[in-house]
């Protein structure tokens, strides 16, 4: 269960978010525009303004501000970004329903391109763009849309949706007739949208001044590869073990082909950064062909999942599946480099022994740390006497420490994380002791 502290911090975060989202309505109440609308008219307008407000603030949630992430973890900010779209879609669709009321049927003829006057058509196109964005993001995997294509279209489509909606509100809206309200609202809304420039223009500009190079490429079991990256002409960055960075390979950080990956190396080895990446999509499969000397750019570090958030724990428990072991590896390597003497446990699910990541490095770490590694294999080899199948509550019961206050880290495929998080909750592990981050949200 979440602790009171978690809930308070979450409440403050959400309270601030709601206040920012409501600001346009507060502005319209403080400096009222012309009256004359009935209840349905006013409600339709309010929903339109709220939809634009939420759409514009989506750019804040994804602007990679580190200070936005703490109470929850960066992944939950992205999850919220994704789920709040439900509200945006509902508000945007209800907006014409309330405004047109019984003449909605007649207004439907405006859906034919070219049929509506431009101030209305811009709203209709904004809604189409919004629906396309939402469907592409919610169903990306089912539609087998490649991540790169999705990411390339997501930003421009989002900007188009919100700019069209803003234009629609300025041209068709009744409530923005007073110039001061109009300009205040426009500046406020465009301010959020401008944050897109931070990620797509200013960040790449800053990254270009701090290039990296791939100094080593190590093939790993299970179609994975480790890229060793070193800063060129600058001092790189310090990170906490368990964090991640956005990697761009190639001569320009503007290419837009950046991907988030967990750091695998020890925080004590900075500025050298190792990323261990499993080949799952086009980009990651291409990594197997990367050669040393390849220019690269790293935007980071990000993420709140780290042993350093729980320095006083009696020990750390890592529950990992597949490449989810990568951030755990960084934390274990860091602990070993620090000469940590506490007892730690890694429960690690893999498909088969020959495809298990870090088998030998983990063995080596066991000699430097008080570390027990429990491999759970989906398809164990003949004569395997260890754990097999998928992670279960019974397995956790068998291996988890029953004394002391530990910090728990869960990283892996979604079904595994669901089982682990539910099982840990049933075992009475408070949510504040549990850290997990997942990034396969789209």
């Amino acid at each position: 269960m979440p602790t009171l502290r978690d809930l308070t911090r979450a409440g403050l975060w959400l309270g601030l978010y709601v206040l920012l989202a409501l600001w346009p309505l507060l502005l319209l109440l403080a400096a009222p525009g012309p009256r004359g609308g009935g209840f349905a008219d006013e409600l339709g307008s309010a929903l339109g303004f709220l939809a634009i407000s939420l759409m514009a603030m989506q750019f804040l949630l994804t602007a990679r501000f580190e200070w936005l992430a703490p109470p929850f973890g960066t992944d939950l900010v992205y999850a919220f970004h994704r789920h709040i779209t439900i509200a945006v879609v509902v508000f945007a669709l209800l907006h014409p329903v309330f405004l047109f009321g019984s003449s909605l049927g007649m207004a439907l003829s405006w859906l034919i391109p070219g049929a509506a006057p431009w101030e209305i058509a811009s709203g209709i196109w904004a809604t189409w763009a919004l629906l396309a964005l939402a469907v592409a993001s919610w169903l990306r995997k089912r539609l087998t849309l490649p991540y790169e294509a999705w990411r390339w279209t997501h930003g421009p489509l989002a900007a188009a949706a919100v700019l069209l909606a803003i234009w629609h509100a300025l041209m068709a809206g009744r409530l923005l007739s007073r110039p001061v309200v109009r300009w205040l609202w426009l500046a406020w809304t465009l301010g959020w949208v401008g944050l897109l420039l931070r990620v797509r223009v200013f960040k790449p500009l800053a990254l270009r001044r701090r290039p990296w190079t791939v100094s080593e490429v190590r093939p790993e079991p299970g179609d994975a590869v480790t890229l060793v990256l070193e800063p060129v002409g600058h001092d790189g960055f310090r990170f906490r073990s368990g964090q991640f960075a956005w990697l761009t390979l190639g001569a320009s950080p503007f290419a837009g082909r950046e991907h988030p990956f967990s750091i695998a190396s020890s925080a004590m080895a900075a500025p050298r950064v190792e990323l261990t990446i499993k080949a799952v999509g086009d980009f990651t499969r291409g990594l197997l062909a990367v050669k040393p000397g390849q220019p690269a750019f790293l935007d980071g570090p990000f993420g709140t999942m780290s042993i350093d958030a729980f320095p006083d724990a009696d020990g750390y428990v890592f529950i990992a599946g597949g490449s989810g072991v990568v951030p755990c590896m960084s934390m274990l390597r860091t602990l070993a480099d620090r000469g940590d003497r506490r007892p730690h446990l890694l429960l690690f699910g893999s498909s088969e022994l020959s495809r298990t990541l870090f088998r030998e490095p983990l063995q080596a770490l066991s000699t430097r740390l008080d570390l027990r590694v429990v491999h759970v294999l989906e398809r164990p080899p003949e004569g395997w006497r260890g754990e097999q199948g998928y992670l279960t509550q019974a397995m956790l019961d068998r291996w988890l420490p029953h004394r002391g206050r530990h910090a728990y880290f869960v990283c892996g495929p979604n079904p595994m994380m669901d089982v682990a998080e539910a099982a840990l909750a049933r075992l009475g592990v408070p949510m504040s002791d549990l850290h997990s981050e997942r990034f396969d949200l789209v």
Binding site: F39, E42, A87, D418
Partner: peptide, 30 residues
Amino acid sequence: MRQRLALQAALGTGAFLLLTALLFAAARAS
């Protein structure tokens, strides 16, 4: 479970905003 919390937070926020839109409309309707 954390993911469910994010969904609940988003839906709760949406519901709250809908309520404020109703209040806004009630306050302004002629």
